[in-house]
Amino acid sequence: MPLEIVTEIISIIFVAILIDIILGEPPNRIHPVVMIGRIINFFTKMIKNASRYRKDKDNFEKVMGSILAIGLTATVSLVVYYVSMQSLFLLGTIFFVIVSATLLKTTFSIRAMDHHIKEILVELDRNNLDEARRNLSKIVSRDTQNLSEARIISACIECVAESFVDGILSPLFYYGLLSVPGSMMYRTINTLDSMIGYKDEYHNKVGWMSAKLDTIINAIPARLSPVFLIVSMMVSGQDWKNSIKICKRDYQNTESFNAGVPMSIMAGGLNIQLEKIDHYKLGDMKEQLTIQKCKTSIKITKIATLIFIFSFLIPIIMILNYFDWWTILFGI
């Protein structure tokens, strides 16, 4: 039975990737992450409304925001664990793999980022900067209205590098440790951070715990990411030695504790400079920012994803199986 379970756990990864490639994201009305977002929005508004009538407004928001972050993450993880267990014990192996793969797919995205970036690049290729800026505004928080073509490309490459950790590596990393409940735990925390983990006056207290949890939970995957990106750069003929140099020098330039790691690796490997105006600069402008550079960054992350799955994720799952971890987790 232990060997059968580990085969199923590994199979779930490839079925989930197949779903992502063929079908992409599910409709918003049934997307678990969208539903989680609605819950976050509902309770955040409730907390903010209640805090208006309290003298200890800041402490109240911080405490209630922490309860929201921890409570929602725990609840989602437990619900997903229960659904997984029921599909396994009541419906059998095939349904377990299908249900788990479907849930796992909603926690990561390879095709969606690729699609968004290519939409922007198509408009740049047509010299349609206004439409490129509008498309870019869908995936970044910065003001895109006056960005030049080079700044748009820079933002795209930054998104590709950061999403390799946030959108692929981290959810699959936690899947490798805790199966689907682990990947959904990660996605819940990441969604909390993306919605309320800001430092502005409205969010800085209610989203404090969400931001902290996201920083903590991404710390290990972000610092593992250079290994897979550098090997990918070796395979694809990029300047991997410079990527190491730039990462050591610039990874702390970003306000985010984690985002600077994959972005500085990408900047160094492509011999370009990535810049968010008034926030950070990563790398040196040895070569120009071009559409081809952006396409290369996508290629690098795709190869790195395969390297991660075969050289790290599957071996970790098998090692944990040796110690009967999956037997304990699934109660078999």
Rank of each mutant, 00 (worst) to 15 (best):
P2A: 13
P2W: 06
E8P: 02
I12Y: 00
I13D: 01
A16D: 03
A16W: 02
L18D: 03
D20H: 01
L23R: 10
G24E: 02
R29C: 10
R29N: 12
F43E: 02
K45G: 14
M46L: 14
R52T: 12
Y53A: 10
K57I: 07
D58R: 15
K62R: 15
V63G: 05
M64Y: 09
L68F: 06
I70N: 06
A74T: 06
S77F: 06
V79Q: 08
V80S: 02
Y82N: 07
Y82S: 11
Y82I: 05
S87Y: 05
F96R: 01
V97A: 06
I98E: 10
V99Q: 04
S100G: 09
S100F: 01
T102G: 11
L104M: 06
T106F: 07
A112R: 12
H116F: 13
I120N: 02
E123D: 14
N127K: 10
N128I: 04
L129F: 11
D130K: 15
E131I: 14
R133G: 11
L136D: 08
V140T: 10
S141Q: 08
D143W: 08
S148I: 09
S148F: 08
A150Q: 12
A155P: 06
C159A: 11
V160G: 02
E162W: 00
D166G: 00
D166H: 01
Y175D: 02
Y175V: 03
G176Y: 04
G176I: 02
L177C: 08
S179C: 13
M184P: 04
N190P: 03
G197W: 04
N204Y: 09
V206E: 00
I216N: 11
L229F: 04
G237S: 11
C247F: 08
C247T: 13
Q252K: 14
E255T: 15
S256G: 09
N258F: 00
M266T: 10
I272Y: 12
Q273E: 15
E275K: 14
D278H: 11
H279I: 10
H279F: 11
Q288A: 15
L289M: 13
F308T: 00
F308S: 01
F312M: 01
L313E: 00
M318Y: 10
L320Q: 11
N321R: 05
Y322L: 14
F323A: 09
W325L: 09
W326A: 03
T327L: 10
T327Y: 03
